[in-house]
Design a protein around this nucleic acid. Structure first.
Lengths: 336, 336
DNA sequence: TTGAAAGCGGTACCAC
DNA sequence: GTGGTACCGCTTTCAA
C-alpha cells in the first residue's frame, strides 16, 4: 500500500501539501494540486483511515447493538440505519447482544475501543443499564432506538407503544370483543403496549382477566407452549388476543390452529410490528405497524447530528405514530 | 480516556513495561506487574485499539458484504458469522450491497481502508467481479460464502446448489409430476439449481418446456407478476414449480392461490433455502434446507484461519449438503 | 529485567 | 503558498 510519503515523493512536494489537497484544508496552487492528484492516481493511493482516525480522533464508524437479528423486525431497522450511514460516509459495526446484559456491555466496550464515533442502541430498557452508563461516562454520542427506558431523557426514536396497545385493543373492541387476552414479554415496549391495552379496556369498563395475560417471552415457541397450556388448563379462553410482537402472535395463532380453533372465526388475533411475513402467515395477520425502517433511519440521522455538531446536542425525542394494518386474523366476535 | 502514558506514570514505570504486561509479550517482574495492573485498574485504562491497529497493522475487525438483509436467509447466516467472530475477539463490519456492483466495490474499499483484517464476501458470482479483484490485488484475506463463481479457486463455503436442484426435482418426480416449472434468477446459485433440475428431468427423459422457466428476479413481487402473467397467457401450466429461493416460491404460491388454484391439490411448490417463515407460510412450504447458519459460521472460521496463519493458507472449499424439508406445499400430481 | 526511542500513516500548527 | 515537524497512542527493537 502506498502511503502519503510515497505520494509526496512522487509529486515532489511535502506530505503537508498532499494532506492539504486530499482534505482541501488549505489553498494549494493549481500546479501542485495537479501533480499531487496525478501521483495519487498513479500510485492508486488511498489514505489509511486508521492513521487518520488516530490523529483526528474520529473514525467514521458507528456502532449498533441489537438484541437479535433473526426477528425480521431488526433487519429492516438495520437497513434504515445502514442506508443513512453509508450515505454520509460512515461504516457500521454490528453487535448482537441476545438480551444478555454482560455480553452487551462487553461488545459495546469493544466497539468503543475500536474507536466508533457514536453508537445506536436498540437494546436498552433500563435506566441503570451498564451499557447505557458506559456510553454516558465515556461521552460517546449515542441514541436509543426502538427500545427505551420509561423516563429516559437522552436522544431516542421509537414508536409510541402505548398507542400501539390502544389501537390494537380498540380495534378488537369495535369488533365486539370483550374478552381479550394479552401476550407480552419482559421488555419496556411490551409493558407500554400492555398499559395501552389495559387503559383502553378500562375506558370501556371491561375488567381484565389476569389469567389471560400471558408471558410469551418474545418467543414464538414459548408463546406456542403457553397458549397450548392455557387451553388445557383454563375453563374459558378469550375470544381475542393482542400480542406485543408479531412473532408471539404467530406462536399463539399456531397453537390455536393446531388445537382446532379457527382464526378469526373462533378467536381473533392482533399482533404488533408488522414484520414482512405477517402478511403471508398462515392466516394473514392483523397487526400494528411500527415504522421499523424509519426508526433506523431517523435514529442514524440523529446520531450523525450529535457526532458532527457536538455543541448543539439537544436531547431530541422522536416518537413515531403506529398504525393499524387490517388483515384476516381479526373478525367480529363469534355468536355464543 | 487514560492512555498508556498515564498508566506508566501512575505505576512509575515506562510505557514499554506497561505494554509488555498488557500483551504478556515479555517477562516483567511480579512487582512491576502488580503496580501496572493496579494502575490500569485505578485508571480504568483500556488500550486504544486504533493506535494498536496502526502499529500492528491488524484491527481485529472483519468485514462482511451481503446483497440484502431483508431476505431472512441472510440474518441467520450473519448470525453464524458474528457468533464466531465475537468468540474469537473480532468485531464485524457490515455492508449491504443491494446487488449493485459499484456500490459493492466502494463499500468494500471503505472497509479495507478502515483496516479490516479480512472480509467475508456473500455477494460474488463473477470471477471478474471488481470487488473480488480488489481483495485479491490488496492481498486481503477473504472467503466467499453462499455465492461463488463456477470455477472459483479460492476459499469458499457454500451449499451444493446443483444437488439442491436435483433433490427438489427428484421429490417432485417421485410424486408423479412430469410437468415441472422452474423459477430462478440471475445468480450463480440459481443457475446451478436449474442445472440440477434439468439434469434430473433429463435422466427421466422428460423434456423441459422453456416457457415454464421463469425469471423471478429473486423477488417475491416479481415472481408474483410473472406467474400471474403465465396463467393469463399460457394454455397449460405445470403441475409443479421448483423455485431457487423460498421468497420466489412464496411469490408463485401467492399468485396461484389468488387465482383460485389449490396447493398442493392443483399445483405443488418446492422452494429452496428453508428460511424460518417457510414453515408458517400460508401453505407450509416444502423446501430444501441449505444450512444458512453453518455457512456463516464455517466461513468465519475459515477467514480467521487465513488471518491468523497467513503462511498455511490452503485454498479451502467447503461444500455443504442440502436436505429436503417435507411440508405441505407438495403432493401427488392431480388426476387429469 | 527495564526503558528509550523509532515509527506506524496520517494531520495540522507554525515558520518561512 | 509551501513545507518541516510534533504528535495521536501504541508496539517493538535495541541497548543498558
Amino acid at each position: 500500500m502506498a502511503t502519503i510519503k510515497d505520494v509526496a515523493r512522487k509529486a515532489g512536494v511535502s506530505v503537508a501539501t498532499v494532506s492539504a489537497v486530499i482534505n482541501k484544508s488549505k489553498y494549494v496552487s493549481d500546479d501542485l494540486k495537479q501533480r499531487v492528484q496525478q501521483a495519487i492516481e498513479d500510485l492508486g493511493y488511498r489514505p489509511n483511515r486508521v492513521a487518520r482516525s488516530l490523529k483526528r480522533k474520529e473514525s467514521n464508524i458507528i456502532g449498533i447493538t441489537v438484541t437479535e437479528i433473526t426477528n425480521p423486525f431488526y433487519p429492516l431497522m438495520l437497513e434504515g440505519v445502514e442506508d443513512n450511514a453509508i450515505n454520509e460516509g460512515y461504516n457500521v459495526m454490528l453487535c448482537t447482544t441476545g438480551d444478555d446484559e454482560e455480553k452487551e456491555y462487553l461488545l459495546l466496550e469493544s466497539m468503543i475501543d475500536q474507536g466508533v464515533d457514536g453508537v445506536i442502541l436498540a437494546t436498552i430498557d433500563d435506566l441503570n443499564s451498564k451499557a447505557l452508563k458506559l456510553v454516558q461516562k465515556e461521552g460517546i454520542p449515542h441514541v436509543l432506538i426502538n427500545r427505551a427506558p420509561e423516563n429516559y431523557t437522552g436522544s431516542l426514536v421509537c414508536v409510541d407503544s402505548y398507542k400501539v396497545g390502544q389501537i390494537a385493543t380498540k380495534h378488537l373492541l369495535q369488533l365486539g370483543h370483550t374478552q381479550i387476552g394479552f401476550i407480552g414479554g419482559n421488555r419496556q415496549n411490551s409493558k407500554s403496549r400492555e398499559k395501552g391495552y389495559q387503559a383502553m379496556l378500562a375506558s370501556h369498563n371491561i375488567p381484565v382477566n389476569p389469567s389471560w395475560i400471558i408471558d410469551g417471552e418474545y418467543s414464538m415457541e414459548k408463546t406456542y407452549e403457553k397458549i397450548t397450556k392455557l387451553m388445557q388448563t383454563s375453563r374459558t379462553i378469550p375470544t381475542a388476543f393482542f400480542a406485543a410482537s408479531d412473532l408471539m402472535a404467530f406462536g399463539a395463532a399456531k397453537a390455536l390452529l393446531d388445537n382446532g380453533y379457527t382464526i378469526p372465526g373462533d378467536i381473533s388475533i392482533v399482533g404488533s410490528d408488522n414484520i414482512d411475513f405477517s402478511e403471508d402467515f398462515r392466516v394473514p395477520l392483523t397487526t400494528v405497524d411500527v415504522q421499523k425502517y424509519e426508526i433506523g433511519k431517523l435514529g442514524c440521522e440523529l446520531l450523525l447530528n450529535h457526532i458532527t455538531r457536538k455543541e448543539e446536542v439537544s436531547h431530541q425525542k422522536i416518537i413515531l405514530e403506529p398504525s393499524l394494518v387490517l388483515r384476516e386474523s381479526s373478525g367480529a366476535v363469534r355468536k355464543k
